[in-house]
């Protein structure tokens, strides 16, 4: 007989009841009193130099509470990579800053370089469009093909990285000569060239974040679609914004799938936290975005 409870039993899921009756609470389901809405202004070109971002007209539009550009985050940290990999020659990987909002250059279609916070989502969208219209981005040739990226040193994603290579890694370097010799002397060698296709996780719930600031205690709260709220707290507090960890609470409520896409601490999360503070009259800020990656 299969077990009917405890370890090894196919107990029915208790969480199903709220999901089946429409009572789950995902981030975008929340509506905090005075909640404002943020919309990102995203690059429409893959590679470009930011010549001008004029936010004056947008800032004066109805309902607009705050505007942000890359300039506002130039002094804080970038979103860090989780792992430091060393190349075969022992040198550490090249790790360009990943800013909260793009600064100087945009480097992919969808790279956010400004953001608008407004009383309603539609007002924020309208103002974001005005910033896009009032910005000038000089399009540069895009580095798309990997072989060409390595071969063509004149075309750089990051100006400081000449060959576009992050690292050249060998595992295990000490095995190499032995492996080469074994292959050379083997009776048969099968060779295959293949492409692991690039995928998008597409968890059904898009990403969303709500940042809140409590002026009385100077505490922050970030509600976000995360697979790892503690890690997000550590990254936002210690690495990106440099605020005490004990002043930031991170909540990941019901989250509609992750598959890896909700591990990373995204710039929008840091932005929602900042927008909450800037915008003291409406102390929370919601961003909702579909994945573009």
């Amino acid at each position: 007989m299969p077990k009917d409870h405890g370890i090894g039993a196919s107990s029915k899921r208790r969480e199903d009841i709220r999901f089946l009756t429409g009572k789950g609470t995902y981030t975008d389901d929340m509506n905090i009193a005075g909640q404002a809405h943020a919309v990102m202004v995203r690059s429409t070109v893959a590679h470009g130099r930011i010549k001008r971002v004029d936010t004056a007209a947008a800032a004066a539009m109805p309902g607009v509470l705050a505007v942000f550009t890359g300039e506002d985050f130039a002094a804080v940290g970038g979103n860090p990579a989780g792992w430091l990999i060393n190349s075969r020659d022992g040198t550490p990987m090249r790790e360009p800053k990943r800013p909260v909002l793009a600064h100087g250059k945009v480097r992919h279609v969808g790279d956010a370089y400004a953001a608008v916070v407004a009383e309603t989502y539609q007002q924020a969208r309208d103002a974001a469009q005005v910033i896009a219209d009032d910005s000038e981005i000089e399009e540069l040739p895009a580095v798309v093909n990997m072989a060409a990226a390595v071969a063509n040193a004149s075309n750089r994603v990051h100006d400081e990285i000449p060959d576009n290579v992050c690292y050249d890694w060998g595992w295990i370097e000490d095995n190499r000569a032995k492996v080469d010799a074994a292959i050379k002397s083997a009776p048969h060698v099968t060779t295959l060239e293949l492409v692991n296709n690039r995928l998008v996780p597409n968890a059904m719930e898009p990403r969303a974040s709500i940042g809140e600031f409590f002026p009385g205690t100077q505490d922050y709260k970030l509600t976000t679609t995360s697979q790892n709220p503690h890690l997000t707290r550590l990254l936002v507090a210690a690495f990106v914004l440099g605020i005490p960890e004990n002043k930031l609470q991170v909540v990941a409520p019901d989250v509609g799938g992750g598959f890896g896409s909700k591990i990373y601490h995204y710039g929008e999360e840091a932005l929602a936290r900042c927008a909450g503070r800037r915008n003291a009259a409406s102390p929370s800020c919601r961003t909702r975005m579909a994945e573009t990656t």
Binding site: H108, V143, C166, V179, L199, G260
Partner: peptide, 23 residues
């Protein structure tokens, strides 16, 4: 008995990648 892996990672003007189920 013998395995060697070489990976060169390249920046491009496409959206940043991250882990996806199995990664």
């Amino acid at each position: 008995p013998n395995v060697y892996v070489n990976v060169k990672t390249v920046f491009t003007n496409t959206a940043p990648v991250d882990a996806y189920r199995g990664a």
